[in-house]
Simulated scan of single mutants.
Amino acid sequence: MNLIIQNIELILLFFGIALLYSSVGFGGGSSYLAILTLFGIEFRTLRAISLLCNITVVSNGSFQFYRQGFLKFKKVVPLVLFSIPMAYFGGRIPIQEEIFFIILGFALLLAALLMWIQKSLQMSSVSMNTETWWFNGLIGGSIGFLSGLVGIGGGIFLSPVLYLLKWDEAKVISATASFFILVNSISGLAGQASSPEFQIDLLLALTLMASVALGGLIGTYVGTKRFKAVTVRRATAILVAYVGVRILIKYIG
């Protein structure tokens, strides 16, 4: 009970993030990292908690997309086949605190930019052959490595890229991003756990997982009726960009 009282603000923020992100098919990893950073949580614990919360949220989302027939495994397999080992490798790499936060800062700024312009990307006219294994494997592997390194699922990077490439219809892209987040989060977490430097505050992690589980359930079933996807993305883009700038000022400035 003391743990809940001491971290009530953090718990409520995680609940809200899960509710909003799940309403558009994401897990919330970038914002979990952003909030944990603002709260001064030890950096070796940040990535593991973020990935555990991601897994909690997108497990249900991926299952719902699968039930509705939006997961096209023939197209998804090349993405995750290369992203899974790369996310594991990224999660396993030992990294100094200063270097980690510099990479995280730039990654958050990139994520914020992609979230902000995603609507424009949906209306783009780029036309490429996205059916080839090597092309999808290159996309999945690159995003998977970055995701494992910083501790997110990668959906916020993957989704805008797939929209830009006219990869498929919106629901299929959301389903793909959700599943991509799930497998990369599991793989990245496995990579972290295999590292000698791995550590986690298990009680805090379980408390936050319970919070995002509730938020994710509500967001999946109700959120889409109350929140416009573009509003959610741009609101979270502002938060993510703000934290990214603060991190870079602290570790570069």
Score class of each variant (00 low, 15 high):
residue 43 F to T: 10
residue 31 S to Q: 07
residue 51 L to K: 07
residue 44 R to P: 09
residue 36 L to T: 05
residue 64 Q to S: 11
residue 41 I to E: 07
residue 53 C to N: 08
residue 13 L to T: 11
residue 23 S to L: 00
residue 100 F to P: 14
residue 76 V to G: 01
residue 96 Q to P: 05
residue 28 G to I: 13
residue 105 G to A: 08
residue 32 Y to D: 13
residue 56 T to I: 04
residue 104 L to T: 10
residue 62 S to K: 03
residue 109 L to V: 15
residue 86 M to W: 01
residue 75 K to N: 15
residue 71 L to Y: 07
residue 70 F to A: 15
residue 96 Q to N: 15
residue 63 F to W: 10
residue 18 A to I: 11
residue 36 L to E: 09
residue 30 S to H: 05
residue 102 I to L: 12
residue 58 V to F: 04
residue 77 V to P: 08
residue 97 E to F: 05
residue 49 I to D: 07
residue 54 N to W: 05
residue 44 R to C: 07
residue 47 R to A: 14
residue 109 L to K: 04
residue 15 F to M: 09
residue 98 E to Q: 12
residue 76 V to S: 04
residue 13 L to F: 14
residue 51 L to A: 08
residue 21 Y to P: 03
residue 99 I to F: 13
residue 93 I to D: 05
residue 58 V to K: 01
residue 36 L to F: 03
residue 109 L to H: 06
residue 95 I to V: 14
residue 62 S to W: 06
residue 84 I to C: 04
residue 62 S to T: 15
residue 66 Y to R: 09
residue 88 Y to V: 11
residue 74 K to P: 02
residue 43 F to N: 06
residue 16 G to D: 07
residue 42 E to R: 10
residue 82 F to N: 01
residue 26 F to N: 10
residue 89 F to W: 15
residue 99 I to T: 14
residue 77 V to I: 13
residue 37 T to D: 00
residue 102 I to N: 02
residue 71 L to R: 06
residue 84 I to K: 01
residue 98 E to L: 06
residue 75 K to Q: 10
residue 103 I to G: 08
residue 91 G to F: 14
residue 20 L to E: 08
residue 95 I to L: 15
residue 78 P to F: 02
residue 8 I to S: 01
residue 78 P to E: 00
residue 40 G to K: 05
residue 11 I to R: 00
residue 13 L to M: 10
residue 8 I to R: 00
residue 46 L to F: 11
residue 91 G to P: 08
residue 81 L to V: 05
residue 59 S to I: 06
residue 47 R to H: 05
residue 42 E to L: 08
residue 34 A to R: 03
residue 97 E to S: 07
residue 74 K to S: 10
residue 45 T to M: 08
residue 84 I to H: 03
residue 7 N to H: 06
residue 90 G to I: 06
residue 60 N to V: 03
residue 43 F to K: 00
residue 46 L to I: 15
residue 82 F to Y: 06
residue 26 F to T: 11
residue 18 A to W: 01
residue 102 I to Y: 08
residue 44 R to T: 13
residue 6 Q to M: 06
residue 32 Y to T: 12
residue 76 V to I: 15
residue 98 E to R: 13
residue 26 F to K: 09
residue 56 T to V: 10
residue 45 T to P: 00
residue 19 L to V: 04
residue 64 Q to M: 12
residue 99 I to E: 12
residue 96 Q to M: 14
